[in-house]
Structures are given as structure tokens and as C-alpha cells.
Amino acid sequence: MYALFRSRPGLGLLAGLGLLVLAFGISLASGLQAIPIGTVLEALTAFDGSPAHLVVRSIRLPRTLIAMAVGGCLGVAGTLTQALTRNPLAAPGTLGINAGATLAVAAGLYLLGTPSLHTLAWLAFLGAAAAAGAVYALANLGRGGVTPLRLTLAGAAMAGFLTALTQGVLVASERTLDEIRLWLAGSVAGRDPEVLRGLLPYMLVGLALALGLGRPLNALSLGEEVARGLGQRTGWVKAAGAAAVVLLAGSAVAAAGPIGFLGLAVPHLSRWIVGPDYRWVLPYSGVLGAILLILADVGARLIIRPGEAPVGVVTALLGVPFFIALARREVGRR
């Protein structure tokens, strides 16, 4: 099966899209009150205003769409981050990019009162870009240039620092705390569908930019010198990649808060399925990220019934063993 996907990657992508539709259906059907799949289909095609139909259309449909979009963005952003830094432990979460966007959004809510969605999105992009730049500059300090390990540790320290500042902002304003407590843990529940509509253009631009980078990233993965020798202008590739990461991670954070470890795990899974060709790894990561975040959100609804966990908790609990296994493998060879 896995050899099949490697030789015919398009087939695997189709299978992935099939799984995505399946996950979408499961997400619409499950929750505190399970709704049979037939009723779900009726709600989508022949809406009659009954309570079950209302639940599907006004609660579960928006959150599933947001989970799909955010998961896709994070999967692609994680793949880009790992490709650009050539670091298997890199991801928007581990490098502090999400934390930067979170701080900017929290500060915006505190200082500006009720800013518009577009202001918040641009604040998130600004925060993400500043954090990414700072981590990269920090990892460049000292002798020996950027090593994967140093980049990861610099990112972790940066994330800790930014999270502390975010907590400072929250404590300074009780109102902000109540409003964004759930968002802060990473959640797709109870979002206004308008949020997705407003952020979708940014996400699409980021995705298009990322998918166009498949071929140059393949060259870059051979090493900076090789890529330059092949005639690539690596500076432009990196700049475009960084811009795409900022757009994708920033809009994901603006929509659903900092969701960790998804961007870390998805690229590894896609590479494992389809091999190292980034022209295919990038779309696979998008589809896989969307499937995983939808399923994680279903899990978040079911694990502590009748309550509901933030989806960021589920991705962290599933992602941490993955992260630890990677850390053990990467740092084991001394």
C-alpha cells in the first residue's frame, strides 16, 4: 500500500481526500448528542429547522470547517518550517512562532478593545514574523551557525518567554482573560463562521505560495550550496517560504489559538507515506493536517463528557510522545 502511494502519489492524495470527507462526516455526527449520518445529510441538503438539523448546521458545521482549514494550514506550515530549516524538530509551535502570534493577538485585544478581524489577523502575522525572525537570529548567535538542536532550544526558550508575557497581559486585564481563555488553549469551538470567511483569503494565499515552492524546496533539501549550484536563488525561496509560514501560522492562530504539535507531527507522517518529494509532501501535509485536526476535535468533544476539552489539549497529548521519540532519535547519536 505504502509502496503504491510512493509510486503513484496522486492515488494516495485521492484516498486522503476520501478520508477527509469521512472525517468531516464523523465530526458532524458526533458530540454530546450523536446524530445519525442520514439526519446529517438531510440537514445539509434539506434543512427543516429541527433541533438536530440546527445543531449540525449552526454548531458542528462551522467548527468542522474551521478545524479543517486550521489543520491544513498548520500541516503545510510545519512542512515548510522543517524544509526551510532542515530540522526535523521544527514547527510553528516548537519555534515560538505560534506564541508570538498569540502574544500579539492578546496584546491587541487588551490595548485596542474590540479590533476588527483583519486588524487581529495582521497583528498575528506581525507577531509570528517577529518571533520567527528573533528565533532565527538567536540561533545564529555564537560559534558554529544554526544547528537543528540550537534552533529548537532557542524556539522553546522564546516560546516560554512569550507565553509568560502573554500571561502578564491576561492578568493585567481580567476581561481579556475571560474572553480568550478557551482560545488560548487552542480551540475551534463556538467560533463565528465569519472568522473563517475573513481569514480564508490569507490562508489561501499562504497555501498557494507554499504549494508553489515544492520544486525549489526539493533542491534546497540537498543543501544550500547544492541548491545554489543548481542555479537557485535560495534567498528568494527562503523569503517566500517564511512569508507563507507567517501567513499560515498567523491565520491559524487568529482562528483557533495556538494549537501545538500538529505542525510537528504531520510532515513526518506525510514523508513516511509519500517519500521525500516536497511537491507531494506539501499537499499531503495539508490534507493530513486537516483530517487529524478534525478527528482531534471529535476526540476533544468526547473525552471529558459532558464537558469539552480544548482541541489543543488533544493535539498536545498525542503529539508529545511523537516529539519525545523524535528528540530521543535525533539527539541519541553522539
Partner: peptide
Amino acid sequence: SHPLRLVLVGIGIAAAAQALTNTVMATT
């Protein structure tokens, strides 16, 4: 014991504990 591996694993464990703490707080 490798110093940096220990730190990375610790970061992961701290994230997991933080996630569980969030879950506990979400139940009430």
C-alpha cells in the same frame, strides 16, 4: 544521560502536563 536530550524531553513532558492541566480546568 545527554544534557540536551534531557532538556528536549523535559520540554515535551512539560507540554503534556500543561495539556492535562488545561483539561482538568476545562472540566469545571
